[in-house]
Amino acid sequence: AALGTQARAEAALPEEELAPNTWEEVTGYCNFYEFGTGKGDPSEYAERMTTEPWSVTIDGLVDNPGGYSFEQILSEMTLEERIYRFRCVEAWSMVVPWQGFELADLLTLAGVQEGAKYVAFETLYRPSEMPGTIYKVLDWPYREGLRLDEAMHPLTIMATGIFGKPLPNQNGAPLRLVVPWKYGFKSIKSVVRITLTDEEPPTSWNMANPREYGFYSNVNPEVSHPRWSQASERRIGGGLFARRQPTLMFNGYEAEVAALYEGMDLSEYF
């Protein structure tokens, strides 16, 4: 089923559009504010982050709560490659070849209890290794969340690598979420906690500025950010004269995910 999803997603657009960006682009142009707000800060400072040992606490409405070591998770999951479009809320985009596993498999391992409606995620918060956290750019630790059906969707993965290599720290080592139809900030990095809840969890950017960043944050060319249009985007790597390209509804994954939002006013639930 998983490979089928990838094939479908790729078939939705001409092949060349999903030609991945380069390693340099994907690892050198990042938002990871725990290491600074500049696009180059994460690649400069993130190597300070200790990622071994790494453990993810899975708690809340699950049958098997507790700490899951990264190795334990890897041994239980099947890794596969997913080439996804990645659209930042700042109106730039990339194509990234991820390796990872479906979040649904991990949640099934933990045993989702009846009554769970949302999944909350938390990034590592370790000020001694994260120079960007001396400023309260956001209310640390970084938090994100999904509705349970979004989390269980086959396109939603936990990535452990890019380009066939382990995730570099600046890209969210050792384990991060990737939700390809949402703005990039939803794809929370360096995850240390996953909590199943029955209430919509607070999320960092929404807390910082609820007018600009909604809980859903689905890529939507028709709903503009209050400070800029989301109708078009610039693919990273085109140089000084790169043309903008139109932004696709749900970042090009409309056929796969539109049903999740049937009957919802997407300009209200943005």
Binding site: Y29, K39, W92, R234, I236, G237, G239, L240
Partner: peptide, 8 residues
Amino acid sequence: GVEPIKAL
């Protein structure tokens, strides 16, 4: 860098 327009 890789996004020279914004940088400039």
